[in-house]
Amino acid sequence: MTHSDEVDQAIAAELELMDPRVRASPERAGQLLDPEFVEVGGSGRRWTYEIMLAELADHPGSSPDAPRYEPSEISGALLAPGLVHLTFETMLGERRTRHSSIWRKKDETEGWRMYYHHATRVPPGVD
């Protein structure tokens, strides 16, 4: 697997996690989040694997009938074999957010899983 293959696979997993059907499915979302997952959300709240799976279906972007995340400027870097850092922006309705996530793949039998995520809301008028 090349460097770009690993980054591309992590990007594909990130995009899948933004899909409302995946976000509404604790089973599928649980396969994309690492059991040691931690997030610092745009609100400043700290999320763990268990809390995120229990509440993700009720989060914005989790309903096919509501606005969905629209990612842009997604890029990644291979930090080490099986460890990728992604950065990107999203729009959800009028809310713009910058994101940083770390994805890891422990072995070939397991897919890429999000280990850490951080989101920062961007105020209107900020480039």
Rank of each mutant, 00 (worst) to 15 (best):
I11H: 09
D5A: 12
A57Y: 03
E6M: 07
T2F: 01
Q9R: 13
L53R: 13
E16D: 10
P35G: 10
P26V: 09
P64R: 10
Q9A: 14
E55D: 14
E6Q: 15
G44F: 11
H3P: 00
P67G: 09
G30Q: 12
D8C: 05
V22T: 15
P67D: 13
L15Q: 12
P35E: 10
V38W: 08
W47E: 05
E50Y: 00
D65F: 11
E39Q: 15
H3W: 04
V7N: 08
L17G: 03
R28L: 05
Q31F: 04
S43L: 00
H59F: 15
Y49R: 14
P67N: 08
D34N: 15
E27D: 12
R28S: 01
D58M: 06
L15A: 05
R23C: 02
E36V: 02
T2L: 03
D8K: 10
E16T: 03
W47R: 04
A24V: 07
S4P: 00
M18L: 15
P20C: 05
T48G: 09
L15M: 11
A57Q: 14
A10R: 08
A13D: 03
P26T: 08
A13Y: 09
A12T: 06
G42P: 04
A54V: 02
E6F: 02
G42E: 03
I51V: 14
H3I: 07
D19Y: 03
Y49S: 10
G61C: 09
A54E: 15
A13T: 11
E14H: 08
E55F: 05
E16M: 05
A29I: 09
L56E: 14
A12I: 00
E14S: 06
D19L: 01
L56W: 13
G42D: 01
S43F: 01
E36P: 01
R28G: 00
Y49L: 08
L32V: 11
A10E: 04
R23A: 06
G30H: 11
D19R: 00
D65W: 09
E16W: 04
I51C: 03
R21S: 10
S43M: 02
D58V: 01
A13I: 03
I11D: 07
R23S: 01
Q31T: 13
V40N: 00
W47F: 12
P35H: 12
I11S: 07
T48L: 05
V38H: 14
S62Y: 04
L15T: 00
E6T: 02
S4N: 13
D5E: 13
A66H: 13
P60H: 11
E27M: 03
A13M: 09
R45V: 07
